[in-house]
């Protein structure tokens, strides 16, 4: 997957209020929810761009893979910090505008072209190559949100949206990788961009695996150490030797002289 043109990535991203995060995660791990999105097809909806043009998602992803985030401009919650995080993390990771592009899609159809421009300016993204801010019709947003299990709900009391946070990467119209409800995943976002650029991402899960892991990982110190599972690897050999020794020992008593 080295040719950037061969890939189309979409990453949709939204971040929920803490209360919502807890709710969305209940029962199923974030990781599993993310995994479930892989290979999902992205509906090719029409967009209104911040510069006033209209375009379909597929044309945005034609040149290069695409990262897509979902937000809305009036958000007093996580949207702005999240977009800032994405901006900074991508600057750090490199490759934006040459290896992939970003689409920040508003899911609030009340957002106007002018709102988008104001948001882009506030984030310092107005003239950034690789960034596109857009808004779409309510139905179209509903379709893309449905395809990605993206959850949002207007709260009449506050006039705000409750919503989750999601970033998906799409290969030729399909999701390759997703980041859900993550505000601290710099490394994972960097990996996402690596994957966009065709690099191998080593991955070993230490969070699970019960008591019998090969390695333990201390997130605070970043240190990796051997765990009980490694010891278990010696068990079959030691048990076999013991068994054979006992077998020969016991049988020898009955051995013909």
């Amino acid at each position: 997957m080295p040719g950037a043109g061969a890939l189309a990535f979409a990453a949709t991203l939204a971040l929920g209020a803490g209360a919502f995060c807890a709710e969305s995660v209940a029962g199923e791990s974030v990781e599993r929810l993310e995994q479930r999105l892989r290979e999902r097809a992205i509906p090719d909806i029409p967009l209104r761009l911040a510069d006033g043009r209209t375009a379909a998602i597929s044309t945005l992803g034609q040149q290069r893979p695409l990262l897509v985030t979902l937000f809305y401009t009036r958000c007093s919650g996580v949207c702005t910090p999240f977009l800032l995080w994405v901006r900074d993390a991508l600057n750090e990771a490199g490759g934006l505008g040459t290896d992939y592009d970003v689409l920040a899609l508003s899911f609030d159809d009340a957002d106007s072209v002018r709102d988008l421009q104001a948001q882009a300016a506030a984030l310092g993204l107005a003239n950034e190559p690789g960034w596109t801010l857009a808004v779409a019709e309510r139905d179209a947003v509903a379709r893309i949100a449905g395809a990605l299990d993206f959850w949002y709900r207007a709260d009449p009391a506050t006039g705000q949206f409750d919503h989750s946070a999601l970033l998906v990467a799409v290969d030729q119209g399909r999701v390759v990788r997703a980041l859900l409800d993550s505000t601290t995943g710099n490394r994972r976002l960097r990996e996402m961009t690596w994957e966009l650029r065709g690099r191998f991402i080593p991955f070993y899960r230490t969070a699970d695996g019960g008591a019998l892991r090969c390695f333990a990982f201390d997130a605070r110190s970043g240190e990796v150490s051997f765990d009980w599972g490694m010891l278990l690897l010696a068990a079959p050999a030691l048990a076999a030797l013991a068994l054979v020794a006992v077998l020969f020992g016991v049988t020898s008593r009955h051995r013909a002289a």
Partner: peptide
């Protein structure tokens, strides 16, 4: 005998996951 005992451990870990849902370490 050692190989077959290793097989026994693998199978037990599979059954544990089937019965309790406790996942195993992939490297192990």
């Amino acid at each position: 005998v050692a190989a077959l005992l290793a097989g026994v451990i693998v199978l037990v870990l599979f059954y544990v996951e089937l019965l309790s849902g406790a996942t195993s370490d992939t490297l192990l």
